[in-house]
Amino acid sequence: SPSVSTAELDHLVQTISKSHLETCQYLTEELQQTSWQSFLQAEVESYQSKPRELMWQLCAVKITEAVQYVVEFAKRIDGFMELCQNDQIVLLKAGSLEVILVRMCRLFDSQNNSVYFDGKFAGPDVFRALGCDDLITSVFDFANSMCSLRLSEDELAVFSAFLLLSADRSWLQEKLKVEKLQQKTQLALQHVLQKNRREDGALNKLRSKVSALRSLCTRHTETLSAFRAVHPDVVRTHFPPLYKELFG
């Protein structure tokens, strides 16, 4: 692995954190201003009684909005834009939803098992109309488990970068180049965890999240395929084109 000085690692953590805060979509202060307001029962029922395809469209739009912030985050990671275009696309196609799921813990109220969605905090029951309760439950479970790690913004930022720079994605053309970037980011992750006086198992706990994330993303793709089989025209005409590019 590359030998990197502590000063360099500090700088790397700093730049990744800055990029993360610049592209995080919602600042913590903004969320605090919402006073963690949950949807009223009437509002929950309104979401629940939406036609399935409309709720899918709404969620696809929200995911697509979030993706655009992740793309901007990736562009600001040192070395990412120096990768070949094919690999930039491969890494974002495979990693953007993983980063969105990690970022979700910033918008998550563990006490009420709810996530910031469409202006207020929504429990899993808000998403019932999607018809994929198992996946929604798993997503909420994941958010809870991420929140319980109590990662700082720095740690979230570097972990997000680490996920994006996964050198084991299929179809990478310059795998060694990505590996080098990932190794440096992993060192930065170890560095920030040590600096924040985390216990030794912290890095391993984060590594164990990687397989959970991949499983969730696979299930999302499969669930979308199943929905598309039933509503091909809805997906074709009403889903955001970027969403279809990445997940279709």
């Binding site: 275009q85 094919n86 696309i89 196609k93 970027l242 590019e245």
Partner: peptide, 16 residues
């Protein structure tokens, strides 16, 4: 690139 025109475009655009 051909299959990911929008993503490619976002990557090409200057920082927003």
């Amino acid at each position: 690139k051909d299959k990911h025109k929008i993503l490619h475009q976002l990557l090409q655009n200057s920082t927003s």
